[in-house]
Amino acid sequence: MTHDPDILCIGSVLWDVIGRAPVHMRQGSDVPGRITRLPGGVAMNIAMTLARFGLRPGLLTAIGQDPAGHELITACRELGMVTDYVYRSQDLPTDQYMAVEGANGLIAAIADAHSLEAAGDKILHPLVSGILGSASDPYEGFIALDGNLTQRLLENIAQSPLFARADLRVAPASPGKATRLMPFLTHDRAVLYVNLEEAGLLCQTTFETSADAASGLLARGARRALVTDGGESASDASADGVITQKPPSVLVTRVTGAGDTFMAAHIAAEVSGSDRNTSLSRALHAAATYVSGGNAQ
């Protein structure tokens, strides 16, 4: 049965395999720790946080018809997501992400999102067919979009009439994919969520603070930009000015997914009608709770 979603999450939904150790690590380290396998991916991480805030996210992604895919679909439904619109490929395996984290943060990661990239614009079919929208009657509402899609597909989305009425919230999957978001830098309906490094890559420079980075993105044509800088600060820049806040100090136990949690909590706050200062504060507290090992809500 189809349920109308409150927000669409477009991008990677996969299995996260994360190895975490409670000690500092470096290249070649071999230490005891814990290995977990959980639903992940940028779109999935955003959707999970949105669901914890009481919203009903719909997923537009590619998931295989293999056992891992069937298991992932079941997990998504149990977590409160609408999976009716997911592209289920017969010949593409379910994607996965593998990372190693130490007490000093992320050590290394490999994202295998080849199936999502191979599926291409097939994942957007519900926005074309009239199920969720069409070129003549585009989808209206919030869309969280992640940079795991191919450069070509992101460029097409930036120009497509299918997104002409949407409130687009856009984030890179990683610094290595930040420049894929160039088409949204001057988009008149996009809000960018990036970290300090990603902002520098988009602006082809280096920034010292989140406020400088957010202002720099606006100077390059962004309508609005939110920039995080770990435990230092986060800034929200728009035509109404720049606001900056410092996140709560917490003991960091995990980092993978923190930026996605920040973005989702910020969207949820704005959906509920919170102002910019309150929304930024709620997002920072949710991200701090997440990295300290709790569930943001």
Rank of each mutant, 00 (worst) to 15 (best):
L8C: 14
G19V: 03
A21L: 08
V23P: 00
H24V: 08
H24M: 11
R26Q: 10
G33L: 06
I35M: 03
T36D: 10
R37M: 11
V42R: 10
M48Q: 15
T49A: 09
A51M: 13
F53V: 13
P57F: 09
L60Y: 13
A62W: 12
A62Q: 14
G64C: 13
D66R: 07
P67A: 04
T74D: 13
A75Y: 01
R77E: 15
R77P: 08
E78A: 13
M81E: 08
T83D: 07
D84N: 14
V86N: 08
Y87C: 03
Q90H: 11
V100D: 00
V100S: 02
E101K: 02
A109W: 01
I110M: 05
A111Y: 01
H114G: 14
S115I: 10
D121G: 05
D121W: 09
L124P: 05
H125C: 14
V128L: 12
V128C: 05
S129N: 12
I131P: 02
L132T: 07
S134Q: 13
D137N: 15
P138N: 06
I143C: 07
I143S: 06
T150G: 05
Q151E: 15
L153G: 06
L154G: 07
E155V: 02
P161A: 11
L162C: 06
D167R: 14
R169I: 04
A171K: 15
S174G: 09
P175R: 03
A178I: 10
P183F: 10
F184V: 11
T186I: 06
D188R: 07
R189Y: 04
R189P: 07
V191T: 13
Q204H: 09
T205W: 08
F207A: 09
E208L: 12
T209L: 00
T209Y: 00
S210M: 10
A211Y: 00
A219G: 12
R220W: 06
A225G: 03
D236K: 00
A237E: 00
D240H: 03
Q245L: 13
S249L: 14
V250F: 08
V252M: 11
G257L: 01
G259Y: 09
D260K: 04
F262A: 12
H266G: 01
I267H: 04
R276A: 00
R276M: 00
S281N: 14
A283T: 07
L284A: 02
A286L: 08
T289V: 03
T289Y: 01
Y290T: 02
Y290Q: 00
V291W: 01
S292Q: 12
G294N: 03
